[in-house]
Computed example of a mutant assay.
Amino acid sequence: MTELLDIFRALADPTRLRIIALLREMELAIGELAAVLDQSQPRVSRHVRILVDAGIVERRREGSWVFLRITRDGAVGDTIARAGEWPYAPREALVIAHDARRLAAVRTERAAVAERYFAEHAPQWDAIRSRHVAESEVEAAMLAMMHNRRLGHLLDIGTGTGRMAEIFAPTARRVTALDRSPEMLRIARAKLSGQGLPVDLIQGDFLDLPMAGASIDSVVIHQALHFAQEPDRVIAEASRVLRGGGHLLVVDFAPHEDEDLRALAAHARLGFSDAQIRGWFASAGLLLENTETLEGGTLAVKLWLGRRRSDEDQPPVTQEGQGQRKRLAA
């Protein structure tokens, strides 16, 4: 009973109920919560700490920012999922509705930040896009290659603006979008927050993924591998978190000699060959199932689809093989 009592004690406050209502809509930082509630940050922080201690709310750090979200697992997730059915008094319902209107201002500010970022970086991105086939064709090819494959819990490594999470979310059970840059995650959050997609945005490094081994059903690395000094380690780390039979889709450039991309966009690698990817896949326990080349412009875009080896991929052991193993063991 202790856990349940802690939950109800933590919820027994008007401000904390307002916080729950807001976090059910979207992840928020302490400062954003304070602005919507029109309360000081120290006061809001105290209420948040009580909710965190009760296991109702989770903190997640992104650079200097800390974002809050409702805990989704266990008794807490089931209880808060029914918050829309809670019997608010008319006056309480008016306060909740007022907060929702103020929350719209947070969404607007996030969108404005994203627009400013896009405006500042548009010339750089346009210069890169002009070198290869249209993004719409790349996305169509990716969706076709993953069609009829179980996406389950999909991990988008190097999510950037969140576009891959956006296009795959409708057919995945859950999407985790990871990026090293807190700024890019804020852009992705602004882009995805109003679409109701099941996406978790987390900060992390593609060389040290913050998730357990064999916990992910599918992984996408779209135009991120060329930033890696050690791309083989990135693929090995992606393979580590994949369940047996899970898929890894890598999308990047074929080998090229466009040195401008090193200075223009900090590319550490100028594309990859099929032989390189095949070798790295094999070393990481992945079977290369499919490849595709999209020509257009001066850069060719490549798609490589690998599958994590499972027990079914191991050849059956014959009686002769069993006897040989026994002799070796002896």
Rank of each mutant, 00 (worst) to 15 (best):
P255Q: 04
E137I: 03
I128Y: 15
V301Y: 07
R91M: 02
H222R: 10
L17I: 13
D217S: 07
H256N: 14
G162Q: 05
V133H: 06
S45C: 00
V36L: 00
V234H: 05
W304K: 09
G246M: 06
D73F: 08
F272K: 05
R101I: 11
H226V: 02
E58S: 12
R16G: 08
R174G: 08
D258I: 09
L178W: 05
H256G: 12
V241T: 03
Q195E: 14
H121L: 10
R149K: 14
L299D: 00
A75Q: 08
D38E: 08
F227S: 01
D232N: 07
A75W: 07
A75P: 09
A228V: 04
P90Q: 02
S283E: 08
A238H: 09
G306M: 01
L103I: 03
G31I: 06
R233S: 00
A81E: 10
F118S: 08
F281P: 06
D53I: 02
A127C: 11
W65Q: 10
I277V: 15
A224G: 08
P231V: 00
Q39W: 04
V113G: 05
D38F: 02
A75H: 11
E120F: 15
P182Q: 04
A172E: 07
A140R: 14
D274I: 09
P42T: 00
A275K: 13
A268H: 06
V95Y: 10
R91Y: 01
V241K: 03
M146H: 07
I157K: 02
L303P: 07
S283I: 01
R327K: 13
I277R: 05
A104S: 12
A214R: 13
R262V: 15
T298A: 06
A105L: 14
D258Q: 12
M142D: 07
A134P: 12
G63A: 05
I128G: 10
V133A: 11
D126S: 15
R49A: 07
L94A: 14
V251A: 02
R18E: 09
L328F: 15
S136D: 13
D200S: 12
L286E: 01
H47N: 12
R43C: 04
A238M: 01
Q314P: 02
A169Q: 09
L154E: 01
T15V: 14
E166H: 13
V138M: 03
L249S: 06
L103S: 02
R278H: 08
E27K: 02
L294W: 00
I167P: 02
A141L: 06
I19F: 04
M1D: 08
V36P: 07
A114G: 13
K326C: 14
D126R: 15
G204P: 08
D200R: 13
T79E: 08
A300H: 11
V106Q: 06
G84Y: 12
R24K: 11
R43F: 09
L286K: 04
R116Q: 15
V44D: 01
F168L: 14
T298P: 00
T2W: 09
V241H: 01
E183T: 15
R131A: 12
I20S: 04
R309G: 06
D274L: 10
A119N: 13
G196N: 13
W86F: 15
G74Y: 07
D99K: 10
Q276G: 07
V57K: 00
E289P: 09
A140N: 08
R150A: 11
G279M: 00
